[in-house]
Design a protein around this nucleic acid. Structure first.
Lengths: 145, 145
DNA sequence: AGGTTAAAATTAGCTAGCTAACTAAAAATA
DNA sequence: TATTTTTAGTTAGCTAGCTAATTTTAACCT
């Protein structure tokens, strides 16, 4: 299915697509849509972050988050409240429903991740991480000529 | 920036995002939008494929392609014509403009790919491919319990 | 203090991807 | 042959992501 001159990045894209669709399937009953798991994870690690902080942590643009949070507020997963000190910033909180969803998401991710790296030795996992980090450094240090 | 308990898949997602944005930047002058490079590459390898074949090769749903091709027809990168034998199938062809864009895309991808794997030994590349293939197999053989 | 600059969030408008429901043509079958 | 089933493609409606422009509030600076 994947010939050996197939670009590795294409293969990686496909793997991540599978990863995401598995997670989606496992949390289908929680009103959580495909892009939202990372947000729920971050909020359950630290509740009440500003949208800017969340966007930075999720490597996503603030505008993307604005729309996403609007939807999640509507489905009752999060609530928003302005910061006391700085009226510009909006802080985001998990609702009870959101907390339940976040735990389901956490379990789902752990499960998919475990499957994904089944058969990997610990040192292979480390090596893989080193490779991906090197790819990251190669691409992020690259200023256009 | 990426703590060692950060999920590896998240890191991979970020790397692919960088990869895509670099390619986008390099082809900015050819009316080619982010999802279109894979399509142009496939068509330049074999012109006149059916939409179904293209969708399967790109690992994308046919409905996605319908919309995408509509846009690309409008920007003049591709043309569509019904198959002679089977009136259900639509075949897709590169225009002259599309062929020029496809070559630019090819150069851009090669350039980014080269950057991405700079400093990798050939055997490291192979090892990485083996890892990613194993991830792929782990996730695609997984039938939900 | 008052005017300017910077920062946080939103809005508008686009592309990409999905699912589900539909149409039309070909193939299979009774 | 007539009916049913399968296949290719489209349409509608959604989420996710982006950029660019706008608004509002805080910070800065003379």
């Amino acid at each position: 299915m994947f010939s050996s001159n197939e670009k590795l990045t294409r293969l990686m894209r496909h793997v991540l697509k599978l990863h995401r669709s598995h997670v989606d399937r496992l949390i289908r009953d929680y009103d959580v849509y495909p892009g939202q798991p990372p947000l729920l994870m971050r909020l359950s690690q630290q509740d009440g972050q500003s949208q800017r902080e969340l966007a930075a942590g999720m490597l996503v643009k603030p505008a993307t988050l604005t729309v996403m949070l609007g939807r999640m507020e509507k489905t009752g997963l999060v609530s928003r409240a302005p910061d006391d000190r700085d009226q510009r910033v909006t802080r985001v909180y998990l609702t009870d429903k959101g907390r339940i969803a976040a735990e389901a998401v956490m379990r789902a991710i752990e499960e998919v991740e475990a499957r994904c790296f089944e058969g990997f030795l610990p040192e292979e996992r480390l090596l893989l991480r080193r490779f991906v980090l090197q790819m990251h450094d190669n691409l992020s240090e690259w200023k256009p000529d």
